[in-house]
Write a protein that binds this DNA or RNA. Structure first.
Lengths: 195, 195
DNA sequence: CGTAGTCTTGAGTATCCTCAACGAGGGTGG
DNA sequence: CCACCCTCGTTGAGGATACTCAAGACTACG
């Protein structure tokens, strides 16, 4: 196992790199995204402490992963050795399966979020998801380490629309701004269901 | 292992059922979807022959799966026995992992499709995906077993917009209609990239 | 203090959704 | 065998939502 520390914007692996490791975020945050011909960079997943990644592809990686904040710490496990170790240790094999299942759950829950809804609904659901996945945050306070651009690429919206949706949620009293990137959720129940 | 034959609309498992089996589609097609409070039924995945499903959840199923066409044949494997068998057979464990990885790949590829694009782009990408995943179909001919409603729920569009997008693609010469549900792809390259 | 990146807000336009009517196809029953 | 019904698919008109282009404010960092 190897521990790496990454600064903001630093790549962990790139699209079409050979897939030779499993990775796990220890601290900080990373984003997994695709690079398309038209320049867009849709974000497939935000990776938080405890999340594993890098194992979806058979041979070459389909996506790029890079750190979102400074001092993001990532652990990497050589794939070859992990596989052979799993062949001897059923418990590890079971663990790897469960990790994959968690990734599937996360991914499929996200699809529901991306389904036809209004922009405020998407952003509200995003805040709820982050509030659940991020560890700290006393009293429904969420600190978002990523930019509005990243949120937009994650939700399939333009960054202006993300900004407007946040303003909209604030005007309706569902959230308040502690700072631009720190948000307090007031009406949690309403966020998931609002118009 | 148990083999079941399902008619159109027949449920295979339902949201909140205990997750006790792995399943694999042998023939036909099934859809995995969520049932929301507002009545919408976003489709998370179309399940084709060779696709496994039902293992993403730890305890209870998060989604509902039902057959899309008559005579859909599904194989089911008891989870408990499969797990204990995998504990003794590393090759099976590896296979189960690979199956999970494939599901992840499929799921993440779909996110790119759902990312911000125009309706025609989404429908075009959907046709390409189905052309790749469905077995037969000589010469770029794709038979879509599902209704326009299903496609709409899969892409996060209204069914009218799906219909209009297909008309649009036809007018621009990228596809032709053999019948309402059988489509011939003429400009495959253009489908993924068109405006 | 200046600069670059980020965030908010505004105005105009394009896209998509809603409501609605109509046509085509398949299955059932007389 | 034909008429009927029901589901599915297409197309149109109008309105709501989100995107594009644009300007200005805030923040962090050098």
């Amino acid at each position: 196992m190897t521990i790496t520390s990454c600064h903001r914007g630093q790549g962990i692996y790139h699209q079409s790199d050979p897939a030779q490791h499993w990775y796990c975020v220890v601290a900080g945050m990373a984003k997994k995204y695709a690079v398309l011909e038209d320049g867009r960079q849709p974000i497939v997943d935000f990776l938080l402490p405890g999340d594993f990644f890098g194992f979806g592809a058979r041979n070459a990686h389909q996506f790029t992963v890079e750190a979102v904040v400074n001092d993001t710490i990532v652990a990497s496990y050589p794939r070859r050795e992990t596989d052979s170790f799993a062949a001897r240790e059923p418990q590890l094999a079971q663990l790897m399966r469960d990790i994959a299942f968690d990734t599937i759950s996360r991914s499929q829950a996200r699809m529901i979020m991306l389904g036809r809804t209004t922009a405020s609904q998407k952003v509200g659901a995003f805040l709820v998801e982050m509030a659940n996945r991020l560890p700290g945050g006393s009293e429904g306070e969420v600190h978002l380490p990523m930019s509005r651009y990243d949120i937009a690429d994650y939700l399939g919206l333009s960054f202006e629309t993300v900004s407007r949706a946040l303003t909209d949620l604030r005007c309706r009293g569902h959230i308040t701004f502690v700072s631009a990137r720190t948000i307090r959720i007031v009406g949690l129940a309403a966020l998931g269901l609002n118009t």
